[in-house]
Design a protein around this nucleic acid. Structure first.
Lengths: 404, 404
DNA sequence: ACTCCTTTGTTTAGAACTAAATAAAGTTTA
DNA sequence: TAAACTTTATTTAGTTCTAAACAAAGGAGT
């Protein structure tokens, strides 16, 4: 409600993170970007220079007034690990603060094993330790389920079979680094806000298609998480009354209608692909102008369009970002989606932009990494103590020395 | 992003508003309720006592420690005017800060008249001036459409036929009081947060049924407004593919399926009511056990339940509050709604509480009044300069003298 | 060449707020 | 009955931040 003071650690780490992600900037640039007064920026920069964390670079040419002195990091700000947990494997990436991936790996993992927690710790630890010289600011984890808060990281996931699993606390204790856990689509929304089209919008919607169907919504710059971290669970919105059975027990959920499994099953039933072929082959058929394959995707685009239109009516975002592994075949979804999407919107919203991401299999893990990269900019999100630890790592001079 | 200081006016006015709405409280109660330290509360209270705005009352009995000194207002904090604008009339209420209505009126008004703005000014002014001795803290206005920000009050409403109407600026200039404008359902959500079941929840959903169908969502304590103030426009979500034509130009919108007009048309077609009877007679028939009337409401409950279930999947609220003039007949909607609502939710959300408001025709205007009553508690909502003016009126000693 | 304007950066005098320590006034426990 | 504990309220020593004023260094216009 009423806001406490005490943002010094946020401001200092945000400056370092900004320079790490956006490159050299002037005091005036930083003050504008981070929303603080020029007077305060002078003081903060003085501290950071005195701490040996940043240095003055060359002057930038005048834009009509006094030329600006650019500032840069003294050393690398550190790296971030991002992990996406699936039921039969984990994807891991190591990134810089600017989101650039420096290393990645996909590893076998069984979420239903009785030793899944220790297995996870071992997998992340060995990935982390394979680059022993890097300062790891933190580990971001994306899961297909709901999470109480990012900083606490208690996971509830039907898909993984996890019920109130203290994932965040276990990982951060065992790894000795800060860990932030979030629903995987919300993590993607965080990444979009930091690096993607969402960067220039306070209100945007991310929709993911593929094996699952999900959404993440950012309003007023903050991710909508809901009462228990379960916002965005659109995969189980009823899209077709009395439609096909869904894994959740209900009928006609959008995920049961257009999820990858459903498309593959329909394609096998129609003989478009064989019983051992999968979504990649279906896409190949559509790419090769197979009318049935194309019709299948076009048909899937329609309920998706209607559902997303409903989300736009509810949330009034400025843009819609479509993401997820299913976007590899977006050109085939597009016309079915666009027609029903636009037709289902009231006229004042009909021109809303839809941006489709190019997808890479690392992107779920990259989204998770963005949780950590985002923490320096916010103290009012749900990152709590773990967020504070990330910020402390950024601003700690002793950590810096080790990394250089 | 990073938060400025400068909340003194918010804190002081919030104390006054709290005492006005909740009655006498101790410093410790106030510090807890408003989220500030005991040290700061000591100082703020000292200022307000010195300004003659509050006074110390009797001690409250010890709860196991030191007994508390209660604090109360020196004089009435002032009144609020709330107005709901419809296309053919306006409803006005005058309330105390605790939401209690002291006066109300419904007046003829034509939203399509070329002089609608001056008509509105005249109507509000005469309502306001009829109680010449009261300090009016501000005027809250609820409209059936989207509003850019509460403090700016530029209205876009298909129903009223208004396109970018500077309602807030015109009213505040002409009336000489602060004016806050908001979508009418969002205003109801603000009222629920302040006085209703939403008071104890950071995340809740308000759904209104009646002539229109709408929603307001509060998450993390803040109202979700969207990019242009258009969040919550659920009336035009497609509930029935290729369903009945809607006023918005689309087909099958939930409002075209279950809105009052649609129910009345169906009831006339079925002979349940005559061609000159309306929703009240339909409800009377249902109350009198007319099976066809009851079936009509039961049938309307089903698409409503499915749509609200979708909202719950998207937003993960802690409770759902059903409101609006259509709730007068809720007992007939309930079984159709509950069955399809619960059946359309994933099992982890199936026990979410649904609270149905008792409805009074003043409630839209009361919701609008709550915009003003809420302003002292928030400086980060969209009330801007008008919110600041409300707070200044609360904390101004000279205004106080006039009121006593 | 000089003046005016703009942009960048710094200094000054506060405002707003907190954590920790302390004081006050009870209730509970041994 | 005294000690321990709890709750309410205040004091102290800061931290964080701002608006206003000022200084520095250019570009544009006359």
């Amino acid at each position: 409600m009423l806001r406490p003071s005490g943002n010094g650690d946020v401001n200092r780490s945000a400056i370092l993170a900004f320079l790490g992600s956006a490159g050299a900037a002037s005091r005036a640039d930083l003050a504008r970007a981070l929303g603080v007064s020029p007077a305060l920026m002078t003081q903060l920069v003085k501290d950071l220079i005195s701490d040996g964390l940043i240095k003055e670079l060359a002057m930038s040419p005048s834009s009509g007034g006094r030329p600006a002195r650019m500032l840069g990091l003294v050393a690398s700000a550190g790296k971030v690990i991002g992990m996406k947990i699936s039921k039969d494997h984990v994807a891991l990436v190591e990134t810089e603060l600017d989101g650039k991936v420096t290393r990645s790996e996909s590893l076998i993992f069984d979420a239903s094993s009785v030793t899944f927690l220790t297995d996870l710790v071992d997998l992340v630890r060995s990935f982390k330790d394979a680059n022993g010289q890097a300062t790891i600011l933190g580990v971001g984890v994306g899961v297909p389920g709901s999470v109480d808060t990012q900083g606490s990281g208690v996971v509830e996931s039907a898909l993984l079979g996890w019920h109130q699993i203290p994932l965040g606390a276990s990982l951060s204790r065992e790894l000795g680094t800060p860990v932030l856990v979030e629903n995987n689509v919300n993590a993607l929304a965080v990444a979009e806000r930091l690096y993607g089209p969402g960067h220039d919008h306070a209100d945007f919607l991310v929709v993911t298609i593929g094996e699952g169907v999900g959404a993440g919504f950012v309003t007023g710059g903050g991710v909508v998480r809901g009462g228990r971290g379960g916002a965005g669970e659109i995969g189980h919105i009823v899209a077709v009354v009395d439609g096909p059975a869904c894994t959740c027990g209900n009928y006609g959920c959008i995920e049961a209608v257009i999820g990858e499994k459903s498309l593959v099953a329909d394609a096998r039933r129609l003989g478009i692909i064989t019983a051992v072929e999968s979504i990649a082959e279906l896409q190949t058929q559509a790419d090769n102008d197979d009318v049935q394959a194309q019709t299948l995707f076009l048909g899937a685009g329609q309920p998706l369009g209607r559902t997303v239109a409903g989300l736009v009516q509810v949330l009034d975002p400025e843009i819609v970002i479509i993401s997820g592994e299913g976007t590899k075949a977006w050109k085939h979804w597009k016309s079915g989606f666009e027609q029903s999407f636009r037709a289902s919107l009231t006229s004042d919203r009909r021109s809303i932009p839809v941006v489709v991401n190019s997808w890479d299999d690392e992107d779920w893990a990259r989204g998770a990494a963005a949780l950590v990269a985002s923490a320096p900019f916010y103290s009012d999100e749900s990152s709590g103590e773990q967020g504070r630890r990330v910020r402390a790592r950024l601003t700690s001079p002793t950590v810096k020395k080790v990394s250089s």
